[in-house]
Design a binder for these strands. Sequence first.
DNA 1: CTAGGGTTACAAAAAAGTGCGTAATTTACT
DNA 2: AGTAAATTACGCACTTTTTTGTAACCCTAG
Lengths: 113, 113
Amino acid sequence: MKDLVSRCPIEEVMQVLSGRWPTLLIYYLQEGTKRFSELQRDNPTVSHRMLTLELRKLEQAGIVQRTVFEGYPLRVEYDLTQAGMKLVPLIDALGDWWMATDDTRADMTEEKV
Amino acid sequence: MKDLVSRCPIEEVMQVLSGRWPTLLIYYLQEGTKRFSELQRDNPTVSHRMLTLELRKLEQAGIVQRTVFEGYPLRVEYDLTQAGMKLVPLIDALGDWWMATDDTRADMTEEKV
DNA sequence: CTAGGGTTACAAAAAAGTGCGTAATTTACT
DNA sequence: AGTAAATTACGCACTTTTTTGTAACCCTAG
């Protein structure tokens, strides 16, 4: 992520949501408060490092709230913020659009015989 | 883009829309039919390689229609498909959300003094 | 020594940029 | 008239940049 001085809101929001993890994390956080390790379990293929990086990015973007509970072992909880929750239906709408346009699309899943 | 066998529509749609160019290209194509070179002019920083790759991806995803007019110099036109046009308001909604949540966000644009 | 939630340095992989080549016709120059 | 150059939309190979993964280390109470 370089400049983020794009003047175009769509470009900016896509900079946050682009990639494999952001929408997935939002999806899982939609289920409720989650701890770091729960998110790891929800998504076994994300590396430890990516998970921290992406959560930080979402936090900076005001989508995710990070709460640290001091004490040992350390506990950190993640939730969607108000803004993050408002984003959920928009992302869902994209998923719905994708499913609805299934037929109009060259099948990208199989044709690699 | 590796497998795209994700079973999750959101993951799949994000695989198409992720990155800097897809939404931008959709935005410019929304203005009407464009030729390759026009899109290049609309967006001076995209390399011709990326432009071809991204347009092909959008074509495969059923978002963009590519029409070749034989003859020399070769002419190729790009438009949004019906499905592509339906996607536009969803992307706009993301932009609106981004602007609306401007205040709830750690300022990512300046703080690098 | 473990758990939890990291950070950091280094390495591998993926994505993006660069520049040359191509086609057939038109325009430009001499 | 003859040759050179430009045009359009790429493809291909190569290099650079960016992103992601790996592994090691940190901290502290129990």
